[in-house]
Design a protein around this nucleic acid. Structure first.
Length: 566
RNA sequence: CGGGGUGUAGCGCAGCGGGAGCGCGCCUGCUUUGGGAGCAGGAGGUCGCCGGUUCAAUCCCGGCCACCCCGACCA
């Protein structure tokens, strides 16, 4: 490609709107054009990278036995009502009506439609297992798109879906997909970690996220220093500090004037936070939920939502809502509370004789104990892991990192086959529900994440496998006939050798060309100049390196190939 | 949806009750060519939209919209 003709110009100023490096650099390089919040068009440079990423994905999916399809993005709302996800996805689902006023959606993902397609085409256990995948545009009306391609409303995604006769088969498909994912990210030049994850609105049980560690990431992951355990903070478990059991003591009331927080209580009564019970109030679907957790821990709202069976619109209750139920925020405890669901973290059973609110202002109880003094309706792990907590597996300290979720794989089980009645007959003609898995990669997000992980102060430093071209061919002084001729000859020669070249044939100064080459960040830069021609050489430099070297003109192809391979 | 911020030329920004500007980019010509060149000339704007105040509004007031950031939410 001749840069003088390329659609997409570089900018000399950073666009003010872009904060993330990947967003800023893609804007500056003229790779993307924003139409609306979280809606981007891809210019040629970005599209070439995306096509390369797609091709890598396609090869690995095919190698794992996948068959590619393309499904309709426009779907009847009916599919989503039947699966129950119209309600579950709420306003995240783009909805529209056709001219006959029939309700439609722009598909945010394709489990429902593909399940119907499988019902129509899988008639026997002999047709299973089956892995089907698609690479296409999906739509989600995100509450807050951000970060360029990192979080968008219209996006390209690879989704694969597996269909198996039983759990063992699902496990095999899931493991095959996990390995394909490792291959894909590795081939794209990305360092990812695998973490246990919450499955959210997709549903299902086991799920693993592939996270690219980056400060700009939206997700927080919890990692054991040993490397044996890693999980999304939404899901992460940890070893809660144990306390020796004590003989149960009688409840006593303590005067605690003006004391409202755990911190104040601990100071006033000279007790550790782990000897207190904290009351936190949430609202979900109009119901107030009383949450109790040991004072040294915090509530994990995703875990809380899950133990409540998927609490819609879960949020902290306001002081007014708490007061309306006759409770006293700041000195509340579950003792004597009736008619309100009480959800407890299992930490309240780790220890005894806790300090807790007395349900009237300025008083607390000493020596409260679960079962003896109150009974929780649900007891489960609803605690949030914090940096420095102990790993549940080995006891080593957990650390926290920010990361970008580039892939997520789920064991859906019968979540969709049950509600949509996708069955197969076994050898005896007996019907069984098909076991499903689904496996997603955000293609555009992967490009953004790749740039997030591979850039310096001058621009992108793209992995060779996903760079839009292999080589920046920089001709210094195109006005000079010998430079123009020899650059053109090298351009032709490189292309004939199957090397993809972005030829900077513009009539720009050396500085502009070098800076643009650094910005776009192709793996190899070749320089043709009068100086080099005089010596019969071409200068070659890897984008990732500070050092350039000169090579004889006849050795350039071999040199470029070697640099691309390294 | 809550909080904060910004809307003036392609990009970055200044301005201010009465002439719409600067830097970069763009066009023409000449010179220049190893890290964002020089000189000369030039093009480009419903100052986000609607309404109000005023003799007069880009500027003041009100409403709306859009975009960005934090949070909520979310694959």
């Amino acid at each position: 490609m001749r840069m003088s003709k390329m659609f997409g110009k570089t900018l000399r100023n950073d666009p003010a709107e872009a904060e993330l490096a990947s967003h800023r650099l893609m804007m500056r390089a003229g790779m993307i054009y924003q139409a609306s919040a979280g809606v981007y068009s891809y210019m040629p440079l970005a599209l070439r990278s995306l096509r390369k990423i797609e091709q890598i994905i396609r090869e690995e999916m095919d190698a794992a036995g996948g068959q590619e399809v393309q499904m309709s993005a426009l779907q009847p709302l009916e599919f989503w009502v039947e699966s129950g996800r119209s309600a579950a996805m709420g306003s995240e689902l783009f909805r529209l009506h056709d001219r006959r006023d029939r309700p439609l959606v722009l598909a945010p993902t394709h489990e429902e439609l593909l399940t119907y397609m499988v019902k129509a085409n899988v008639h026997s256990y002999r047709d299973l297992p089956l892995i089907v995948y698609q690479i296409q545009t999906k739509f989600r009306d995100e509450p807050r798109p951000r970060g360029g391609l990192i979080r968008v409303r219209e996006f390209d995604m690879k989704d694969a879906y597996s269909f198996d006769v039983d759990q063992d088969g699902l496990d095999v498909s899931y493991d095959a997909m996990a390995q394909a994912y490792r291959n894909i990210f590795s081939r794209c030049g990305l360092d990812t970690i695998e973490v246990e994850a919450d499955s959210g609105a997709i549903g299902g049980k086991d799920s693993t996220e592939f996270i690219l560690v980056a400060d700009a990431g939206e997700d927080t992951v919890v990692i054991c220093q040993t490397g044996h355990y890693a999980a999304n903070a939404e899901k992460a478990v940890f070893a809660k500090p144990q306390q020796d059991a004590e003989p149960l003591l009688p409840v006593e009331e303590a005067h605690t004037p003006g004391i409202k927080t755990i911190e104040e209580l601990c100071e006033y009564l000279e007790a550790p936070a782990s000897k207190t019970l904290k009351a936190v109030f949430y609202m979900t679907g109009g119901e107030l939920v009383f949450v109790v957790i040991r004072g040294d821990l915090e509530v994990n709202e995703v875990k809380l939502s899950n133990v409540l069976g998927g609490a819609p619109d879960l949020r902290l209750a306001t002081h007014e809502e708490v007061a309306a139920h006759g409770l006293t925020a700041g000195s509340a405890s579950p003792i004597g509370v009736e008619g309100i669901r009480i959800v407890a973290d299992d930490s309240i059973d780790m220890g005894s004789n806790f300090l807790a609110g007395a349900n009237r202002p300025d008083y607390h109880f000493r020596n409260t104990n679960h079962h003896r003094d109150f009974e929780a309706d649900i007891v489960d792990d609803i605690a949030l892991a914090q940096p420095g907590d102990a790993c549940a597996k080995c006891g080593m300290k957990l650390i926290m990192r920010r990361g970008i979720e580039v892939g997520h794989i789920f064991k859906l089980g019968t979540r969709y086959s049950d509600v949509l009645q996708a069955q197969y007959p076994d050898e005896n003609g007996e019907p069984h529900l098909i076991l499903m898995g689904c496996y997603g990669i955000g293609v555009g997000r992967l490009l953004g994440a790749a740039i997030e992980q591979n850039h310096d102060e001058r621009g992108m430093v793209l992995p060779s496998t996903i760079a839009p071209y292999d080589v920046s061919l920089v001709a210094l002084n195109m006005q000079n006939d010998s430079v123009a001729e020899s650059a053109q000859a090298l351009y032709d020669e490189l292309r004939a050798a199957g090397i993809e070249v972005l030829f900077d044939d513009r009539n720009e100064s050396a500085g502009v060309k070098f800076n643009d080459a650094d910005l776009i960040g192709l793996p190899v830069r070749l320089v043709v100049s009068t100086r080099n021609i005089r010596e019969g050489v071409v200068e070659a430099k890897a984008r990732a390196s500070d050092d350039a070297e000169t090579v004889a003109a006849r050795d350039v192809i071999d040199k470029v190939r070697a640099m691309l391979a390294s």
